[in-house]
């Protein structure tokens, strides 16, 4: 089990005396205990969702720091053949992210700027419906998850996704990784499909998704099922849109315009 605060202070004190540094001391003396003492996992949600305030995304750096955070947290490779690239979150123009809105008279700032796109973790995900092995499945907390062990690489999910959110490992991704930026998250192998996973491995440790953390408040993450959550508050007070809503997928990534 974990340890109480007295013991924690005792060990931390001894560790600093020995100059071993906090985490190493923990790992050496009681492996795994540090993780257990962090904030409890944010696991109690029923419907994880994201609200992106597009008004706060203007300069290229606003987008790049968010994209880079994801790439770094998940060892996403930079594939040589751009047509076979792997991307979990990226930016598109309005007419590409929201192609159903054939509005010729959009205000120029909206028409010219970019919008972040990623897996929408739909409530009715077509990708989950078509997967023959349940390698992609919907968790009780709303996240559409990938099980890389079970995926046979049939790419039916890629055909089923109406948002183009999924990428396939056409070759060994490690060839395109100069260094493994996050040793805690596995790289994938050739032959499996991958996509944004709402940073479920970070949620398990009580941390927000990497992109949300890097966005400096421009992106909000929370439980749609909880009427008091930040995301519900933002949606009550601001007009929001979603991508291709008429397809019935019920995407859970909202955009404040």
């Amino acid at each position: 089990m974990g340890m109480n605060r007295r013991e924690f202070l005792r060990i931390a004190g001894i560790a600093s005396l020995w100059g071993l540094g906090g985490k190493t001391a923990f790992e050496i003396l009681k492996p795994g205990a540090l993780e257990a003492q962090l904030r409890p996992p944010l696991m109690k949600a029923k419907k994880w969702a994201m609200v992106i305030d597009t008004r706060k995304f203007n300069a290229p750096e606003d987008f790049q720091k968010v994209i880079d955070a994801c790439v770094k947290a998940h060892n996403i490779p930079k594939v040589a053949n751009q047509r076979q690239e792997i991307k979990w979150i990226w930016k598109e123009k309005y007419e590409n992210a929201f192609p159903d809105d054939l509005n010729q008279f959009l205000p120029e700032p909206v028409e010219q700027k970019f919008f972040l796109v990623m897996c929408n973790h739909c409530t009715n995900p077509p990708c989950v419906r078509v997967c023959p092995t349940k390698a992609t499945f919907k968790r009780p907390d709303g996240i559409v998850m990938m099980d890389y062990h079970r995926c046979i690489g049939c790419r039916f999910c890629m055909a089923g996704c109406p948002y183009g959110s999924r990428s396939f490992n056409f070759r060994d991704p490690r060839r395109f990784l100069k260094e493994i930026t996050n040793p805690d998250y596995p790289t994938r192998s050739k032959g499996v499909v991958e996509k944004c996973n709402f940073c479920e491995e970070r949620l398990a440790k009580g941390q927000l998704p990497a992109c949300v953390e890097a966005s400096n408040g421009a992106m909000t993450f929370g439980d749609l099922d909880n009427p008091d959550s930040e995301v519900r508050k933002l949606l009550r007070e601001n007009y929001s849109i979603r991508r291709k809503p008429n397809l019935g997928t019920q995407p859970n990534v909202y955009y404040l315009i």
């Binding site: 995926c151 046979i152 490992n169």
Partner: peptide, 18 residues
């Protein structure tokens, strides 16, 4: 398919909605 040696997963984990 990307993982032909896992094709049996279709039988091991039958998914009638697929």
């Amino acid at each position: 398919v990307g993982y032909p040696n896992r094709l049996l997963n279709i039988i091991l984990y039958p998914t009638p909605n697929s």
